[in-house]
């Protein structure tokens, strides 16, 4: 498990001051920690594409935001990615929970999306990494380097138990 305070302090130190998204139970502890963290505002969005729009506006205002969603909700953001974030070249950090793997592949609402998540990310040309507990900072650094270098969105896939207490 990644220490959530360290994780948020790291994002904060890089200038991220806003998070927005739609919850997943994989992010339950993280969202509680964000709400207790003074220097990052969390905006609960009504839909995942709305969260992308909010983060995009914040970023176009010269500040840094990250987005949180479940992979089922990732299926809601196609147009927000292609005709907003990628079209206007807005750097954006997206955390997507990786549902539908061995932990919950018996849940039918997750099983198909679990199988296609990485393929859909590749189809949308979104660089992605799987967040690992033991070297999370190095992975995040690599993703953020790519985001800054390309001025485009990047994604971190988060499996069960990685971002929790």
């Amino acid at each position: 498990m990644i220490n959530l305070d360290e994780f948020l302090e790291y994002l904060d130190s890089l200038g991220f001051s806003l998070g927005t998204g739609v919850p997943c139970s994989y992010f339950k502890d993280l969202l509680l920690a964000i709400n207790e963290y003074d220097d990052i505002l969390y905006v609960p969005a009504t839909r995942e594409d709305e969260a992308v729009g909010i983060a995009c506006g914040f970023s176009l205002g010269g500040k840094k935001a990250f987005v949180i969603m479940q992979n089922s909700g990732f299926a809601n953001i196609g147009d927000a990615l292609t005709s907003l974030v990628q079209l206007y070249e807005v750097p954006l950090l997206i955390f997507i929970s990786y549902r539908g793997l061995e932990d919950d592949d018996d849940l039918p609402e997750h099983s198909l999306m679990g199988k296609v998540t990485e393929g859909v990310l590749r189809a949308y040309k979104i660089p992605y990494w799987i967040l690992m507990e033991h070297r999370w900072k190095a992975i995040l650094e690599k993703a953020l380097h790519k985001m800054t270098q390309t001025s485009l969105p990047v994604c971190l896939l988060v499996k069960n138990g990685v971002l929790c207490k």
Partner: peptide, 20 residues
Amino acid sequence: LYLRGSMGLPMAVGLGLALA
């Protein structure tokens, strides 16, 4: 800020700007 796509998102983009 002229949006050319992202139907349904101008209020969200405006909200992000308003917070920034």
